[in-house]
Write a protein that binds this DNA or RNA. Structure first.
Lengths: 242, 242
DNA sequence: CGAGCCGTTGAGGGGATTCAAGCTCAGTGG
DNA sequence: CCACTGAGCTTGAATCCCCTCAACGGCTCG
Protein backbone atom coordinates (compact mmCIF):
# COMPACT_ATOMS: atom_id res chain seq x y z
CA UNK A 1 0.00 0.00 0.00
CA UNK A 2 1.94 3.05 -1.18
CA UNK A 3 1.02 6.59 -0.21
CA UNK A 4 1.93 9.62 -2.26
CA UNK A 5 1.17 13.12 -1.01
CA UNK A 6 -0.40 15.36 -3.58
CA UNK A 7 1.30 18.73 -3.62
CA UNK A 8 -0.18 21.74 -5.22
CA UNK A 9 1.76 24.64 -3.74
CA UNK A 10 4.13 24.59 -6.64
CA UNK A 11 2.04 24.67 -9.76
CA UNK A 12 4.97 23.62 -11.86
CA UNK A 13 5.32 20.40 -9.93
CA UNK A 14 4.16 17.49 -12.07
CA UNK A 15 1.60 16.41 -9.46
CA UNK A 16 0.60 19.98 -8.76
CA UNK A 17 -2.66 19.91 -10.61
CA UNK A 18 -3.64 16.38 -9.77
CA UNK A 19 -6.75 17.30 -7.86
CA UNK A 20 -7.89 20.03 -10.22
CA UNK A 21 -7.42 17.94 -13.31
CA UNK A 22 -8.37 14.65 -11.76
CA UNK A 23 -10.38 12.65 -14.21
CA UNK A 24 -12.83 11.56 -11.57
CA UNK A 25 -13.23 14.97 -10.05
CA UNK A 26 -16.69 15.28 -11.45
CA UNK A 27 -17.60 11.98 -9.82
CA UNK A 28 -15.76 12.54 -6.56
CA UNK A 29 -16.83 14.16 -3.39
CA UNK A 30 -14.97 17.41 -3.94
CA UNK A 31 -16.42 17.91 -7.36
CA UNK A 32 -18.68 20.57 -5.89
CA UNK A 33 -15.77 22.71 -4.74
CA UNK A 34 -14.26 25.41 -6.90
CA UNK A 35 -10.52 25.79 -7.42
CA UNK A 36 -10.27 28.06 -4.42
CA UNK A 37 -11.87 25.42 -2.28
CA UNK A 38 -9.51 22.85 -3.68
CA UNK A 39 -6.55 25.04 -2.80
CA UNK A 40 -7.48 24.82 0.86
CA UNK A 41 -7.57 21.06 0.90
CA UNK A 42 -5.23 19.60 -1.66
CA UNK A 43 -2.31 19.39 0.72
CA UNK A 44 -4.17 17.02 3.01
CA UNK A 45 -5.26 14.56 0.41
CA UNK A 46 -3.00 11.66 -0.39
CA UNK A 47 -3.01 9.39 -3.38
CA UNK A 48 -2.86 5.71 -2.60
CA UNK A 49 -2.37 2.47 -4.45
CA UNK A 50 -3.64 -0.84 -3.17
CA UNK A 51 -2.71 -4.19 -4.68
CA UNK A 52 -5.35 -6.83 -5.48
CA UNK A 53 -6.65 -8.75 -2.46
CA UNK A 54 -5.07 -6.27 -0.07
CA UNK A 55 -7.36 -4.89 2.65
CA UNK A 56 -8.19 -1.20 2.86
CA UNK A 57 -9.66 -1.46 6.33
CA UNK A 58 -11.56 -3.89 8.54
CA UNK A 59 -14.98 -3.87 10.08
CA UNK A 60 -14.94 -2.41 13.57
CA UNK A 61 -11.73 -0.48 13.00
CA UNK A 62 -11.88 3.19 14.02
CA UNK A 63 -10.49 4.90 10.97
CA UNK A 64 -9.70 8.55 10.45
CA UNK A 65 -10.22 8.79 6.72
CA UNK A 66 -12.66 8.26 3.90
CA UNK A 67 -11.59 7.29 0.41
CA UNK A 68 -12.65 8.04 -3.12
CA UNK A 69 -12.03 5.38 -5.75
CA UNK A 70 -10.10 6.77 -8.71
CA UNK A 71 -9.80 3.43 -10.49
CA UNK A 72 -10.30 -0.25 -9.82
CA UNK A 73 -12.89 -2.21 -7.91
CA UNK A 74 -13.28 -2.59 -4.15
CA UNK A 75 -15.45 -5.14 -2.38
CA UNK A 76 -17.18 -4.91 0.98
CA UNK A 77 -17.26 -8.09 3.01
CA UNK A 78 -18.82 -9.28 6.21
CA UNK A 79 -18.39 -12.48 8.12
CA UNK A 80 -21.68 -14.14 8.96
CA UNK A 81 -22.25 -15.53 12.42
CA UNK A 82 -21.88 -18.97 10.95
CA UNK A 83 -18.35 -17.91 10.19
CA UNK A 84 -18.39 -17.69 6.42
CA UNK A 85 -17.69 -14.67 4.34
CA UNK A 86 -20.36 -12.77 2.49
CA UNK A 87 -19.54 -10.07 -0.05
CA UNK A 88 -22.28 -7.49 0.25
CA UNK A 89 -21.36 -4.81 -2.27
CA UNK A 90 -18.84 -3.55 -4.81
CA UNK A 91 -17.54 -0.02 -5.26
CA UNK A 92 -15.93 1.41 -8.39
CA UNK A 93 -14.67 4.63 -9.87
CA UNK A 94 -16.11 7.67 -8.14
CA UNK A 95 -17.58 5.79 -5.19
CA UNK A 96 -17.04 7.00 -1.65
CA UNK A 97 -15.68 4.44 0.77
CA UNK A 98 -16.07 4.49 4.52
CA UNK A 99 -18.27 7.58 5.03
CA UNK A 100 -19.28 6.19 8.43
CA UNK A 101 -16.03 7.53 9.87
CA UNK A 102 -17.36 11.04 9.25
CA UNK A 103 -19.94 10.17 11.89
CA UNK A 104 -17.13 8.96 14.18
CA UNK A 105 -18.23 5.39 13.75
CA UNK A 106 -16.07 2.35 13.11
CA UNK A 107 -16.00 0.95 9.60
CA UNK A 108 -19.07 -1.16 8.90
CA UNK A 109 -17.44 -3.69 6.58
CA UNK A 110 -14.15 -5.19 5.60
CA UNK A 111 -13.01 -3.41 2.46
CA UNK A 112 -10.67 -5.26 0.12
CA UNK A 113 -9.21 -4.36 -3.26
CA UNK A 114 -10.43 -6.64 -6.04
CA UNK A 115 -8.18 -5.26 -8.75
CA UNK A 116 -5.30 -2.86 -8.45
CA UNK A 117 -6.96 0.19 -6.94
CA UNK A 118 -6.12 3.90 -6.93
CA UNK A 119 -7.63 5.93 -4.13
CA UNK A 120 -7.71 9.43 -2.75
CA UNK A 121 -7.39 9.39 1.00
CA UNK A 122 -9.34 12.18 2.71
CA UNK A 123 -8.84 12.73 6.46
CA UNK A 124 -12.00 12.93 8.52
CA UNK A 125 -10.97 16.22 10.10
CA UNK A 126 -10.78 17.82 6.69
CA UNK A 127 -14.38 17.05 5.93
CA UNK A 128 -15.38 18.13 9.44
CA UNK A 129 -13.87 21.58 8.86
CA UNK A 130 -15.22 22.01 5.39
CA UNK A 131 -18.64 20.83 6.47
CA UNK A 132 -19.02 23.92 8.67
CA UNK A 133 -19.17 26.25 5.74
CA UNK A 134 -19.87 24.26 2.63
CA UNK A 135 -23.44 23.07 2.58
CA UNK A 136 -22.87 21.95 -0.97
CA UNK A 137 -20.27 19.49 0.26
CA UNK A 138 -22.69 18.01 2.76
CA UNK A 139 -25.26 17.62 0.04
CA UNK A 140 -22.74 15.85 -2.10
CA UNK A 141 -22.00 13.55 0.81
CA UNK A 142 -25.66 12.71 1.14
CA UNK A 143 -25.75 11.90 -2.54
CA UNK A 144 -23.01 9.35 -2.00
CA UNK A 145 -24.82 7.82 0.90
CA UNK A 146 -27.98 7.44 -1.05
CA UNK A 147 -26.13 5.91 -3.94
CA UNK A 148 -24.54 3.37 -1.65
CA UNK A 149 -27.92 2.53 -0.18
CA UNK A 150 -29.37 2.13 -3.60
CA UNK A 151 -26.51 -0.13 -4.64
CA UNK A 152 -27.00 -2.27 -1.58
CA UNK A 153 -30.69 -2.74 -2.26
CA UNK A 154 -30.12 -3.41 -5.93
CA UNK A 155 -27.51 -6.00 -5.00
CA UNK A 156 -30.05 -7.70 -2.80
CA UNK A 157 -32.76 -7.67 -5.42
CA UNK A 158 -30.47 -8.68 -8.31
CA UNK A 159 -27.85 -10.97 -6.87
CA UNK A 160 -29.58 -12.67 -3.99
CA UNK A 161 -32.68 -13.80 -5.86
CA UNK A 162 -33.56 -16.77 -8.01
CA UNK A 163 -31.63 -19.76 -9.33
CA UNK A 164 -27.85 -19.83 -9.56
CA UNK A 165 -27.60 -19.27 -13.30
CA UNK A 166 -29.69 -16.13 -13.09
CA UNK A 167 -27.59 -14.74 -10.24
CA UNK A 168 -24.37 -15.37 -12.13
CA UNK A 169 -25.71 -13.65 -15.23
CA UNK A 170 -26.74 -10.59 -13.24
CA UNK A 171 -23.35 -10.50 -11.55
CA UNK A 172 -21.72 -10.45 -14.95
CA UNK A 173 -23.91 -7.54 -15.97
CA UNK A 174 -22.86 -5.69 -12.85
CA UNK A 175 -19.20 -6.46 -13.45
CA UNK A 176 -19.66 -5.18 -16.96
CA UNK A 177 -20.42 -1.76 -15.51
CA UNK A 178 -16.81 -1.59 -14.33
CA UNK A 179 -15.42 -2.72 -17.68
CA UNK A 180 -13.03 -0.75 -19.83
CA UNK A 181 -13.85 0.25 -23.35
CA UNK A 182 -13.41 -3.14 -24.99
CA UNK A 183 -15.63 -5.00 -22.58
CA UNK A 184 -12.69 -6.42 -20.68
CA UNK A 185 -13.29 -6.55 -16.97
CA UNK A 186 -12.37 -8.17 -13.73
CA UNK A 187 -13.63 -11.66 -12.98
CA UNK A 188 -13.69 -12.76 -9.35
CA UNK A 189 -12.24 -16.08 -8.28
CA UNK A 190 -14.80 -18.87 -8.07
CA UNK A 191 -14.69 -18.71 -4.31
CA UNK A 192 -15.45 -15.00 -4.41
CA UNK A 193 -18.33 -15.54 -6.77
CA UNK A 194 -19.60 -18.05 -4.27
CA UNK A 195 -19.37 -15.52 -1.45
CA UNK A 196 -21.18 -12.93 -3.52
CA UNK A 197 -23.99 -15.13 -4.71
CA UNK A 198 -24.25 -17.60 -1.84
CA UNK A 199 -23.28 -20.68 -3.78
CA UNK A 200 -20.43 -23.18 -3.76
CA UNK A 201 -17.30 -22.79 -5.85
CA UNK A 202 -18.33 -25.88 -7.82
CA UNK A 203 -21.64 -24.35 -8.82
CA UNK A 204 -19.93 -21.08 -9.72
CA UNK A 205 -17.37 -22.95 -11.81
CA UNK A 206 -19.98 -25.05 -13.61
CA UNK A 207 -21.97 -21.97 -14.54
CA UNK A 208 -19.00 -19.89 -15.70
CA UNK A 209 -17.83 -22.82 -17.84
CA UNK A 210 -21.31 -23.28 -19.22
CA UNK A 211 -21.53 -19.60 -20.16
CA UNK A 212 -18.09 -19.80 -21.75
CA UNK A 213 -19.25 -22.68 -23.92
CA UNK A 214 -22.35 -20.69 -24.83
CA UNK A 215 -20.18 -17.82 -26.05
CA UNK A 216 -21.42 -15.35 -23.44
CA UNK A 217 -17.92 -14.72 -22.13
CA UNK A 218 -14.29 -15.39 -22.83
CA UNK A 219 -11.70 -15.91 -20.12
CA UNK A 220 -8.71 -13.59 -20.50
CA UNK A 221 -5.74 -14.44 -18.34
CA UNK A 222 -6.24 -15.40 -14.74
CA UNK A 223 -8.60 -12.71 -13.51
CA UNK A 224 -10.06 -11.25 -16.68
CA UNK A 225 -13.19 -11.75 -18.78
CA UNK A 226 -14.35 -10.36 -22.04
CA UNK A 227 -18.11 -10.11 -21.95
CA UNK A 228 -20.08 -10.45 -25.15
CA UNK A 229 -22.79 -8.08 -24.14
CA UNK A 230 -25.31 -9.01 -26.81
CA UNK A 231 -25.21 -12.67 -25.87
CA UNK A 232 -25.11 -11.82 -22.17
CA UNK A 233 -28.12 -9.56 -22.25
CA UNK A 234 -30.00 -12.06 -24.34
CA UNK A 235 -29.22 -14.79 -21.83
CA UNK A 236 -30.45 -12.57 -19.01
CA UNK A 237 -33.66 -11.85 -20.83
CA UNK A 238 -34.21 -15.51 -21.59
CA UNK A 239 -33.70 -16.25 -17.91
CA UNK A 240 -36.21 -13.61 -16.85
CA UNK A 241 -38.81 -14.76 -19.36
CA UNK A 242 -39.52 -17.66 -17.01
CA UNK B 1 -54.57 7.09 5.05
CA UNK B 2 -55.67 9.84 7.45
CA UNK B 3 -53.76 13.08 7.89
CA UNK B 4 -53.93 15.18 11.02
CA UNK B 5 -52.15 18.53 11.16
CA UNK B 6 -50.19 19.10 14.32
CA UNK B 7 -50.88 22.53 15.72
CA UNK B 8 -48.74 24.16 18.29
CA UNK B 9 -49.77 27.80 18.24
CA UNK B 10 -52.33 27.24 20.96
CA UNK B 11 -50.56 25.52 23.78
CA UNK B 12 -53.84 24.59 25.42
CA UNK B 13 -54.83 22.55 22.40
CA UNK B 14 -54.57 18.82 23.22
CA UNK B 15 -52.24 18.25 20.24
CA UNK B 16 -50.30 21.40 20.94
CA UNK B 17 -47.23 19.79 22.38
CA UNK B 18 -47.19 16.72 20.21
CA UNK B 19 -43.84 17.42 18.62
CA UNK B 20 -42.13 18.62 21.78
CA UNK B 21 -43.32 15.69 23.85
CA UNK B 22 -43.20 13.12 21.09
CA UNK B 23 -41.96 9.84 22.44
CA UNK B 24 -39.79 9.23 19.44
CA UNK B 25 -38.36 12.71 19.33
CA UNK B 26 -35.02 11.46 20.53
CA UNK B 27 -34.98 8.93 17.72
CA UNK B 28 -36.41 11.18 15.06
CA UNK B 29 -34.72 13.51 12.68
CA UNK B 30 -35.62 16.70 14.55
CA UNK B 31 -34.28 15.38 17.81
CA UNK B 32 -31.30 17.65 17.34
CA UNK B 33 -33.40 20.81 17.27
CA UNK B 34 -34.22 22.80 20.40
CA UNK B 35 -37.73 23.97 21.23
CA UNK B 36 -37.18 27.21 19.36
CA UNK B 37 -36.27 25.24 16.29
CA UNK B 38 -39.33 23.10 16.72
CA UNK B 39 -41.50 26.20 16.93
CA UNK B 40 -40.45 27.15 13.41
CA UNK B 41 -41.42 23.84 11.92
CA UNK B 42 -44.22 22.23 13.84
CA UNK B 43 -46.95 23.79 11.74
CA UNK B 44 -45.68 22.05 8.62
CA UNK B 45 -45.47 18.58 10.03
CA UNK B 46 -48.50 16.34 9.76
CA UNK B 47 -49.27 13.20 11.65
CA UNK B 48 -50.39 10.32 9.49
CA UNK B 49 -51.87 6.88 9.99
CA UNK B 50 -51.50 4.13 7.44
CA UNK B 51 -53.40 0.86 7.57
CA UNK B 52 -51.65 -2.50 7.12
CA UNK B 53 -50.78 -3.37 3.52
CA UNK B 54 -51.46 0.19 2.37
CA UNK B 55 -48.72 1.82 0.28
CA UNK B 56 -46.88 4.91 1.49
CA UNK B 57 -45.36 5.59 -1.89
CA UNK B 58 -44.09 3.79 -4.96
CA UNK B 59 -40.72 3.45 -6.58
CA UNK B 60 -40.15 6.10 -9.21
CA UNK B 61 -42.73 8.47 -7.76
CA UNK B 62 -41.50 12.05 -7.30
CA UNK B 63 -42.53 12.75 -3.73
CA UNK B 64 -42.30 15.97 -1.81
CA UNK B 65 -41.95 14.60 1.71
CA UNK B 66 -39.92 12.34 3.94
CA UNK B 67 -41.42 10.45 6.85
CA UNK B 68 -40.40 9.44 10.32
CA UNK B 69 -41.88 6.24 11.75
CA UNK B 70 -43.52 6.84 15.12
CA UNK B 71 -44.85 3.29 15.48
CA UNK B 72 -45.36 0.19 13.40
CA UNK B 73 -43.30 -1.50 10.72
CA UNK B 74 -42.81 -0.47 7.10
CA UNK B 75 -41.34 -2.63 4.36
CA UNK B 76 -39.43 -1.61 1.25
CA UNK B 77 -40.13 -3.63 -1.86
CA UNK B 78 -38.77 -3.87 -5.36
CA UNK B 79 -39.98 -5.80 -8.35
CA UNK B 80 -37.25 -7.86 -9.97
CA UNK B 81 -36.91 -7.89 -13.71
CA UNK B 82 -38.31 -11.36 -13.68
CA UNK B 83 -41.44 -9.75 -12.35
CA UNK B 84 -41.54 -11.05 -8.80
CA UNK B 85 -41.47 -9.00 -5.68
CA UNK B 86 -38.48 -8.80 -3.40
CA UNK B 87 -38.67 -7.19 0.04
CA UNK B 88 -35.29 -5.58 0.62
CA UNK B 89 -35.55 -3.96 4.05
CA UNK B 90 -37.78 -3.15 7.01
CA UNK B 91 -38.08 0.14 8.87
CA UNK B 92 -39.41 0.64 12.39
CA UNK B 93 -39.80 3.24 15.10
CA UNK B 94 -37.47 6.18 14.59
CA UNK B 95 -36.42 5.28 11.07
CA UNK B 96 -36.39 7.87 8.31
CA UNK B 97 -38.27 6.94 5.17
CA UNK B 98 -37.67 8.34 1.73
CA UNK B 99 -34.65 10.61 2.31
CA UNK B 100 -33.88 10.43 -1.40
CA UNK B 101 -36.54 13.08 -2.03
CA UNK B 102 -34.32 15.55 -0.18
CA UNK B 103 -31.93 15.08 -3.09
CA UNK B 104 -34.81 15.70 -5.50
CA UNK B 105 -34.80 12.09 -6.56
CA UNK B 106 -37.76 9.78 -7.01
CA UNK B 107 -38.41 7.20 -4.32
CA UNK B 108 -36.11 4.23 -4.67
CA UNK B 109 -38.52 1.55 -3.43
CA UNK B 110 -42.16 0.80 -2.93
CA UNK B 111 -42.92 1.44 0.72
CA UNK B 112 -45.82 -0.44 2.28
CA UNK B 113 -47.15 -0.56 5.82
CA UNK B 114 -46.78 -3.98 7.42
CA UNK B 115 -48.71 -3.19 10.57
CA UNK B 116 -50.78 -0.16 11.40
CA UNK B 117 -48.25 2.64 11.11
CA UNK B 118 -48.04 6.13 12.59
CA UNK B 119 -45.85 8.59 10.73
CA UNK B 120 -44.73 12.18 10.81
CA UNK B 121 -44.81 13.69 7.35
CA UNK B 122 -42.08 16.25 6.74
CA UNK B 123 -42.17 18.32 3.54
CA UNK B 124 -38.98 18.41 1.54
CA UNK B 125 -38.97 22.19 1.41
CA UNK B 126 -38.90 22.36 5.17
CA UNK B 127 -35.70 20.37 5.38
CA UNK B 128 -34.25 22.39 2.52
CA UNK B 129 -34.77 25.63 4.44
CA UNK B 130 -33.53 24.30 7.73
CA UNK B 131 -30.54 22.71 6.07
CA UNK B 132 -29.18 26.14 5.19
CA UNK B 133 -28.52 27.04 8.80
CA UNK B 134 -28.60 23.90 10.84
CA UNK B 135 -25.53 21.81 10.22
CA UNK B 136 -26.60 19.61 13.10
CA UNK B 137 -29.69 18.64 11.16
CA UNK B 138 -27.64 17.63 8.17
CA UNK B 139 -25.43 15.53 10.37
CA UNK B 140 -28.48 13.85 11.80
CA UNK B 141 -29.64 13.15 8.29
CA UNK B 142 -26.36 11.52 7.44
CA UNK B 143 -26.71 9.35 10.51
CA UNK B 144 -30.02 8.09 9.18
CA UNK B 145 -28.55 7.37 5.82
CA UNK B 146 -25.74 5.38 7.28
CA UNK B 147 -28.12 3.43 9.45
CA UNK B 148 -30.23 2.54 6.46
CA UNK B 149 -27.13 1.43 4.59
CA UNK B 150 -26.04 -0.68 7.49
CA UNK B 151 -29.47 -2.25 7.74
CA UNK B 152 -29.44 -3.08 4.06
CA UNK B 153 -26.07 -4.79 4.28
CA UNK B 154 -27.01 -6.65 7.43
CA UNK B 155 -30.18 -7.83 5.71
CA UNK B 156 -28.10 -9.18 2.89
CA UNK B 157 -25.65 -10.96 5.16
CA UNK B 158 -28.29 -12.32 7.54
CA UNK B 159 -31.37 -13.02 5.48
CA UNK B 160 -30.01 -13.87 2.06
CA UNK B 161 -27.46 -16.45 3.14
CA UNK B 162 -27.60 -20.14 3.91
CA UNK B 163 -30.34 -22.74 4.07
CA UNK B 164 -34.00 -21.85 4.46
CA UNK B 165 -34.33 -22.73 8.13
CA UNK B 166 -31.43 -20.51 9.04
CA UNK B 167 -32.88 -17.59 7.10
CA UNK B 168 -36.27 -17.96 8.76
CA UNK B 169 -34.67 -18.05 12.21
CA UNK B 170 -32.71 -14.88 11.51
CA UNK B 171 -35.81 -13.17 10.19
CA UNK B 172 -37.58 -14.00 13.44
CA UNK B 173 -34.70 -12.48 15.39
CA UNK B 174 -35.00 -9.33 13.30
CA UNK B 175 -38.77 -9.19 13.76
CA UNK B 176 -38.17 -9.59 17.48
CA UNK B 177 -36.39 -6.23 17.42
CA UNK B 178 -39.71 -4.61 16.62
CA UNK B 179 -41.57 -6.52 19.34
CA UNK B 180 -43.45 -4.94 22.20
CA UNK B 181 -42.60 -5.68 25.82
CA UNK B 182 -44.07 -9.15 26.00
CA UNK B 183 -42.32 -10.47 22.93
CA UNK B 184 -45.43 -10.15 20.80
CA UNK B 185 -44.65 -8.99 17.30
CA UNK B 186 -45.81 -8.87 13.74
CA UNK B 187 -45.54 -12.00 11.63
CA UNK B 188 -45.55 -11.56 7.85
CA UNK B 189 -47.82 -13.64 5.67
CA UNK B 190 -46.16 -16.72 4.23
CA UNK B 191 -45.99 -15.06 0.86
CA UNK B 192 -44.22 -12.06 2.36
CA UNK B 193 -41.76 -14.29 4.16
CA UNK B 194 -41.10 -15.86 0.80
CA UNK B 195 -40.43 -12.47 -0.78
CA UNK B 196 -38.09 -11.52 2.04
CA UNK B 197 -36.09 -14.73 2.10
CA UNK B 198 -36.37 -15.82 -1.53
CA UNK B 199 -38.28 -19.03 -0.89
CA UNK B 200 -41.73 -20.37 -1.73
CA UNK B 201 -44.75 -19.97 0.52
CA UNK B 202 -44.75 -23.72 1.05
CA UNK B 203 -41.21 -23.74 2.38
CA UNK B 204 -41.98 -20.74 4.59
CA UNK B 205 -45.08 -22.46 5.91
CA UNK B 206 -43.30 -25.73 6.61
CA UNK B 207 -40.57 -23.98 8.55
CA UNK B 208 -42.91 -21.79 10.59
CA UNK B 209 -44.98 -24.84 11.47
CA UNK B 210 -41.87 -26.78 12.34
CA UNK B 211 -40.65 -24.00 14.64
CA UNK B 212 -44.11 -23.82 16.22
CA UNK B 213 -43.94 -27.52 17.02
CA UNK B 214 -40.46 -27.02 18.46
CA UNK B 215 -41.80 -24.38 20.82
CA UNK B 216 -39.75 -21.55 19.31
CA UNK B 217 -42.83 -19.47 18.57
CA UNK B 218 -46.56 -19.30 19.17
CA UNK B 219 -49.01 -17.95 16.61
CA UNK B 220 -51.22 -15.22 18.03
CA UNK B 221 -54.18 -14.26 15.90
CA UNK B 222 -53.78 -13.88 12.16
CA UNK B 223 -50.67 -11.69 11.95
CA UNK B 224 -49.05 -12.06 15.37
CA UNK B 225 -46.33 -14.21 16.93
CA UNK B 226 -45.04 -14.60 20.42
CA UNK B 227 -41.36 -15.42 20.20
CA UNK B 228 -39.76 -17.52 22.88
CA UNK B 229 -36.42 -15.82 22.72
CA UNK B 230 -34.44 -18.38 24.68
CA UNK B 231 -35.50 -21.20 22.39
CA UNK B 232 -35.14 -18.98 19.32
CA UNK B 233 -31.62 -17.89 20.09
CA UNK B 234 -30.65 -21.43 20.94
CA UNK B 235 -32.03 -22.62 17.62
CA UNK B 236 -30.07 -19.91 15.81
CA UNK B 237 -26.88 -20.89 17.57
CA UNK B 238 -27.43 -24.55 16.82
CA UNK B 239 -27.91 -23.61 13.18
CA UNK B 240 -24.70 -21.59 13.08
CA UNK B 241 -22.68 -24.32 14.78
CA UNK B 242 -22.93 -26.25 11.54
C1' DC C 1 -73.61 -21.64 2.18
C1' DG C 2 -70.49 -21.22 -1.41
C1' DA C 3 -66.49 -18.41 -2.83
C1' DG C 4 -62.04 -17.03 -2.07
C1' DC C 5 -57.90 -16.36 0.46
C1' DC C 6 -54.49 -18.15 3.42
C1' DG C 7 -52.13 -21.72 5.54
C1' DT C 8 -50.84 -26.60 5.94
C1' DT C 9 -49.23 -30.98 4.44
C1' DG C 10 -47.87 -34.68 1.04
C1' DA C 11 -45.49 -36.70 -3.11
C1' DG C 12 -42.31 -36.24 -6.73
C1' DG C 13 -38.72 -34.01 -9.35
C1' DG C 14 -34.95 -30.85 -10.11
C1' DG C 15 -31.28 -27.98 -8.94
C1' DA C 16 -27.59 -27.13 -5.75
C1' DT C 17 -24.45 -29.18 -2.45
C1' DT C 18 -21.28 -32.59 -1.09
C1' DC C 19 -17.60 -35.60 -1.87
C1' DA C 20 -14.12 -36.88 -4.87
C1' DA C 21 -11.02 -37.06 -8.64
C1' DG C 22 -8.33 -34.90 -12.25
C1' DC C 23 -6.84 -30.81 -14.69
C1' DT C 24 -4.13 -26.38 -15.70
C1' DC C 25 -0.71 -23.40 -14.83
C1' DA C 26 2.68 -20.48 -12.46
C1' DG C 27 6.46 -20.78 -9.39
C1' DT C 28 10.41 -23.41 -7.44
C1' DG C 29 14.46 -25.74 -7.19
C1' DG C 30 17.19 -29.66 -8.59
C1' DC D 1 15.37 -27.80 -18.81
C1' DC D 2 11.96 -30.07 -16.46
C1' DA D 3 9.98 -32.64 -12.79
C1' DC D 4 7.71 -31.14 -8.54
C1' DT D 5 4.35 -28.71 -6.09
C1' DG D 6 0.27 -26.40 -4.74
C1' DA D 7 -3.48 -23.33 -5.61
C1' DG D 8 -7.28 -22.64 -8.36
C1' DC D 9 -10.43 -24.54 -11.66
C1' DT D 10 -13.16 -28.19 -13.80
C1' DT D 11 -15.94 -32.20 -14.05
C1' DG D 12 -18.47 -36.39 -12.34
C1' DA D 13 -21.64 -39.02 -9.19
C1' DA D 14 -24.51 -39.35 -5.22
C1' DT D 15 -27.23 -36.99 -1.94
C1' DC D 16 -30.29 -33.74 -0.16
C1' DC D 17 -32.77 -29.60 0.17
C1' DC D 18 -36.11 -26.90 -1.79
C1' DC D 19 -39.42 -26.19 -5.52
C1' DT D 20 -43.41 -27.66 -8.05
C1' DC D 21 -47.79 -29.50 -8.25
C1' DA D 22 -51.63 -30.89 -5.78
C1' DA D 23 -55.15 -31.57 -2.32
C1' DC D 24 -57.33 -30.14 1.74
C1' DG D 25 -58.85 -27.39 6.05
C1' DG D 26 -59.91 -23.09 8.44
C1' DC D 27 -61.51 -18.60 8.15
C1' DT D 28 -63.89 -14.42 6.57
C1' DC D 29 -67.23 -12.30 3.88
C1' DG D 30 -70.62 -11.52 0.52
Amino acid sequence: MSIVPIYRQDLRHPQAQVCASCGVRQFAIFGVLDDAGLDRIHAHIASMDVAPDRPLFSRGERGAAVYTVRSGVVRFERVTERGDRRIVRLAGRGDLIGPEVLLHRPYADDAVACTAVQLCRIPRTLVDELGQGETALLRELMQRWQRALDDAEAWLADLATGPARRRVLRLLVKLGEHADGSGLTWLPRREEIGDMLDMTIETASRLISQLRREGVLELVGARGVRLHMAALLQAVRREDAL
